[in-house]
Design a protein around this nucleic acid. Structure first.
Lengths: 313, 313
DNA sequence: TTTAATTATACTCATATAGAGAATAAATGC
DNA sequence: GCATTTATTCTCTATATGAGTATAATTAAA
């Protein structure tokens, strides 16, 4: 409480540490992410890390999210720590912002409707990531031509664009969502490229967010897609009892790709991930589907229980 | 330069942000990690993050490592951000320390001998992780009995110990190195458990390090082991030209497991990861081995080019 | 100079997994 | 009762994996 002069003649520029969360749920057939309002723009829930308040970072994240949105998180994992300079428009806070980003998975139905939070469709943010209906048109029409122009004859750039966007014979890899977003940022196809330079947005693919928040969502999406293959994370997104059809729909929503139904069933059943409950769901139309539950014991049985086959070698 | 009174009546406790690096190489048949001396104890190279000095965190890491050890890093990836309270002995800096940890892979022969750095054998740190010769005795003799006692009839604890250490029929999973170290810390089998409580170490498995640095190495080892299956990271650890025997030796060193030689060869060759150079190495004893090089183009051909088969489902 | 030891490389075979499609089952709406 | 819808089961093929065995090209020893 005393007003002391700083002992330090040149107080160093501040480093702000904040916690940001990508809170994901699948409702219907779309993955959604929680956004809060930041002066009219979409932002992820975030708050400052306090020096002594929480024993672990994860507890701090839970508190920040609870306080800002009222949501009580279940599954939480650390995603990545961002701290580049120049990823914020000019009236930057003096010094540097470090954002420790977390991924949280929730069941949308479990989350009570909250004050001032919006669920935003992930594929509104990244329309080029949803291949379920078909390969998105904007890849051929807008993205590829620009990428090719940008890469030119530069081998490093060509390799990057080929691998990220599956060009020239390279297969499309779901889990490279971050690489794709970063490339679009560099090339100048997303609004944040211009925001950060305080220029009017010439091109504007997908719905933008404040600062580097869309980058964090891209990180989350890529990480989650990769993880589906070797950890039973989908079960964090469905109720305790579900049909295999629903499980598949959720996996497809996350992966942005459709799967062969009989093969999905075979994989999930024979991997020991689920067991039938003997109960059935009577939905409109069609044969009733059996309800299944997640078998936690599978964790003891197999080292890498996933719900999609690992990407081909 | 002016001495101004702090505008803030209660200056908040500080948060220190530092960058730590797990620098890994394989020499002979052992993975080694770079340590610096911290008052007689082993520490990872680390330094403070400066607010405005480096554009990206990765550049900051490279600078910190260069300044502290003289090593010029090649492959670098962000590992994890640590910030728990109470993972440091009592004269803690007022407030909180956030460590952003990075994993760097180097070819030991490329690294000029540096002032005051020590290469430490990873399996001196984690003797329970090396299964190459045989399942380590200390698992049966010391670890399992203590874990069983600690878990007792508690289902959550039993599940954790079973999965981490492959107990009661669960298979041993290489990549759970962090979970194992964390469990040993909780149970009180490693020296850091006692250091952090300022008690004399009753039990002391493996070589300890300062603060939570051994935890960071465990994180690195686990992450790297997992990554071998789907990214061609081993090639960061061998010279540009190598025999398949050497490649296998490096993979085995990292994984802590031996592999079937003909199968390893088949996997690596048919995955398109390498191509023969037509040159041969004449080593002492045995038939001369062909020298191979890494085929960078493989990145364009397959989504997940790894050097060990993914863990069974 | 054969012989043994050593390391590299090639081949074999059973089994598991993945991808794709066809066939059957159990409901609903007309 | 019949078309429609969704669930579930089956089949077939190609490829990947795990575990052996056999052969090749060296060096060191007898």
């Amino acid at each position: 409480m005393t007003m002391t002069p700083t002992p330090n003649p040149t107080p160093p520029p501040r480093i702000d540490v904040r916690l940001s969360s990508v809170i994901l749920a699948v409702s219907g057939d779309c993955p959604h992410v929680v956004c809060v309002d930041d002066r009219g723009a979409d932002a992820l829930p975030f708050g400052p890390l306090e020096a002594t308040a929480d024993r672990t970072l994860e507890l701090a994240v839970r508190r920040v999210v609870r306080e800002q949105t009222g949501i009580e998180l279940g599954y939480v994992e650390q995603l990545y720590t961002f701290g580049d300079l120049g990823r914020a428009p000019a009236p930057v806070p003096a010094g540097r912002v470090i954002s420790i980003a977390y991924l949280a998975l929730v069941r949308e139905q479990d989350v009570a409707a909250q004050q001032s939070v919006t669920w935003r469709d992930c594929y509104a943010l990244f329309p080029w990531e949803d291949w379920r209906a078909k390969r998105p048109d904007l890849l051929d029409q807008q993205i590829e031509p620009m990428l090719r122009e940008w890469a030119g004859m530069n081998d490093t750039r060509r390799e990057r664009t080929d691998i990220a966007f599956g060009l020239r014979g390279t297969p499309w890899d779901d889990s490279r969502a971050l690489e794709r977003y970063e490339l679009l940022y560099e090339v100048g196809l997303v609004a944040e490229h211009f925001q950060d330079r305080q220029e009017p947005a010439e091109r504007n693919l997908g719905r933008p967010m404040t600062l580097d928040h869309r980058r964090m969502v891209a990180t989350a999406l890529g990480r989650l897609r990769g993880k589906l293959a070797y950890r039973p994370v989908v079960f964090e997104l469905v109720p305790s009892s579900f049909t295999l059809g629903r499980l598949q729909e959720v996996v497809e929503a996350l992966g942005g790709r459709t799967l062969h139904k009989p093969n999905f069933r075979r994989l999930v059943e024979q991997s020991g991930l689920v067991e039938g409950t003997g109960e059935f769901e009577t939905r409109t139309g069609g044969r009733p589907a059996e309800l299944f539950r997640f078998r936690r014991e599978v964790l003891r049985e197999r080292p890498a229980p996933g719900v999609v086959p690992p990407a081909g070698r």
